[in-house]
Amino acid sequence: MATRALYLVVAAIGIAGSGFAAWWWQKPVSSPAVVPVVEAGRAQTGAAKPVSVEVAVVRTVTLRDEVQAVGSLRSRRSVVLRPEVSGRIMALHFRDGALVRQGQLLAQLDDQLPKAQVQQAQAERSIAQANHQRNQELVAQGFISQRSLEESAANLEVAQAKLALAQATAARLRMVAPFDGVAGIGNVHVGDYLKDGTDIVNIEDIDGLLVDFRLPERYQRQIQRGQTVRITLDALPGAQYTAMVQALDPQIDANGRSLLVRASLDNRNGPLRPGMFARISVELGLRSDARMVPEEAIVPQGNAAIVWKFEPATDARSGQVRRTTVQLGLRRDGWVEVIQGLESGDSVVTAGQQRLQKDGAKVQLFVPAAVGQPG
């Protein structure tokens, strides 16, 4: 019995000892020697590492303030010959694509009936003239009254009017060139019966050409008559022509809010043809102090644009950046004009902006950006 009680006491002591050992093992260790290591680690991770960036210098260049437009070449004068009356073609006096002179007869319609009417009117006028002349002599001698003389004068006027009408009717059957130019390709042949208004041939004056183009209404004060514009054509790559502004439409197009401009250019013995597609460059000004930065430096931010301005330290290979709002102007070949916000010689970040979070961030230069010169 005593032995059994002893066993129970030993078992209770063993269980209690195991529980105490487990509690002691799980107790957090607080060693003074470890604290400096942890604190040192925290201090090391709290130090910000400089961000590697690329920068470019703001350059000052001479910049042409230009606006681009498109248009089509037109003849200085152009007309399509059409008969005013119906009739059959009796003769054609032009060759397709040949030069024609002002007043040259190009097409003749059948005029036999009008010619007969002219002859009849001429005969009636001759009779009226003779009667009126005889009456003048008789009145002078007192054989007839003044009223008879007035009637003969009126008859002469009627005969002259009939002759003029017959001649005008005959002239409408003759189609002549209204100006010097080049005949197009004819659409009719001798013997064809034409109704009034049928196209016969077009005449083009291509010694001088016109080009019409439209500009946004905000440029209406910057363009004026006599100003020169540059023209290039897709059909003639590499060639450039100069035209002069001839007229400005006094009315702004309400649909597109644009201004219609007409320019003229000399084409004597030139290769240009009406209908060619033209690209027009209008120079509105020339600035010799334009500040340009690479497009990569611009960071859109809402409706504004910013750049990260680099402020070098003493070693010039590291420094800090500042967020700067800029006002942009023209774009040329990967470069952007900065109107406000930067000065010539400033440096801006062109790569690595996505890792910049706040003003004063520490940076170090990686490799200077390799970009071309602004155009």
Results as ranks from 00 to 15, higher is better:
Gln108Ile: 03
Phe20Gln: 12
Ala69Cys: 08
Asn135Asp: 09
Leu109Lys: 01
Leu109Ala: 01
Val10Gly: 00
Ala123Ile: 02
Pro36Arg: 04
Val79Cys: 12
Gln122Tyr: 07
Gln119Ile: 11
Ile127Cys: 04
Val80Cys: 03
Val55Gly: 03
Pro50Val: 03
Pro32Asn: 07
Ala22Asn: 09
Ala69Val: 12
Arg77Met: 08
Asp110Phe: 00
Leu106Glu: 02
Leu73His: 03
Ile127Ala: 12
Trp23Phe: 08
Gln68Trp: 15
Pro32Ala: 12
Asn131Gly: 06
Pro36Leu: 05
Ala47Val: 08
Arg76Pro: 07
Arg77Tyr: 15
Ser52Met: 14
Val79Asn: 06
Ala121Gly: 06
Arg4His: 00
Pro28Lys: 09
Gly103Ser: 00
Gln44Trp: 13
Ala128Val: 03
Val55Ile: 06
Gly19Ile: 15
Ser75Leu: 02
Ser31Met: 06
Tyr7Asp: 01
Val85Trp: 07
Pro28Ala: 07
Ala56Cys: 04
Ala21Gln: 08
Arg42Phe: 14
Ala48Leu: 14
Arg88Glu: 11
Leu81Glu: 06
Ala121Ser: 07
Val85Asp: 10
Ala11Val: 07
Glu39Met: 09
Val10Arg: 01
Ala130His: 09
Leu113Tyr: 04
Asp96Leu: 01
Asn131Lys: 15
Val139Ile: 13
Glu124Thr: 05
Leu92Val: 04
Lys115His: 12
Pro32Leu: 10
Tyr7Pro: 00
Val85Leu: 13
Val51Tyr: 08
Gly97Ala: 02
Trp23Gly: 11
Gln104Cys: 00
Arg88Leu: 01
Tyr7Trp: 03
Ala21Gly: 10
Val58His: 05
Gln120Cys: 04
Asn131Ser: 11
Gln104Gly: 01
Val85His: 09
Gln133Asp: 10
Ala11Gln: 04
Pro114Asn: 05
Thr60Asn: 08
Asn131Arg: 15
Ala5Ser: 07
Leu105Cys: 03
Gln44Glu: 12
Thr62Glu: 15
Thr62Lys: 12
Glu124Ser: 11
Gly19Thr: 09
Pro114Ser: 04
Gln112Asn: 13
Ser30Asp: 11
Pro114Ile: 01
Gly71Arg: 05
Ala121Cys: 04
Arg134Val: 15
Asp110Lys: 00
Ala43Trp: 03
Leu8Ala: 02
Pro28Val: 05
